[in-house]
Amino acid sequence: MAKDIIFGLYNDEEHLMAAVDKANEAGLDIWNVYTPFPVHGLDPKLGLSESRLHIAGFVFGMMGTLTAFLGMTWIFTRDWPIIFGGKPYWSVPAFIPITFELTVLFASIGMVVVFYTVCGLGPGVTNPVLDDRITDDKFCLAFDANGLSDSELDKYRDFLNGTRHIAEVHLKSI
């Protein structure tokens, strides 16, 4: 399914930030912004809500905690109680290391899986790349140009050309 994108490339993150500000002032709907590295201060300008990954981490972590602690408790008090080293069956201090490890393990794996899933990334996934230099040194501000009339397209083109420090403007179908 082809989709038309009009985008401008900038040589510096500060140029991009200024252009994003300008687009916000002009009331333009930014489709996406691509950068070679995380640019701080960009998220609020784009109206991105804070990432909620940590919630996933917490939930998975708790699952790990419970799995480990309840698992060991069940095994050593119900399923097959054995005395080790004169310690009681339910030796809480001895359960803590494994409980901790599984908490971290579950939280990490869970978060990473959630991260790749919600971002739509994964082994072999091919997402359209607007410009090969975006992962190098170009900062890209992109607008959705799907089904726009020529005059509407001109509006975007003029806007991009009108931003300071604009390096290139392209239209691409992805």
Partner: peptide, 12 residues
């Protein structure tokens, strides 16, 4: 705290 307690508890 835990490291100190655990070792003392364990080694007894």
């Amino acid at each position: 705290w835990f490291s100190q307690f655990m070792l003392i508890w364990y080694a007894n």
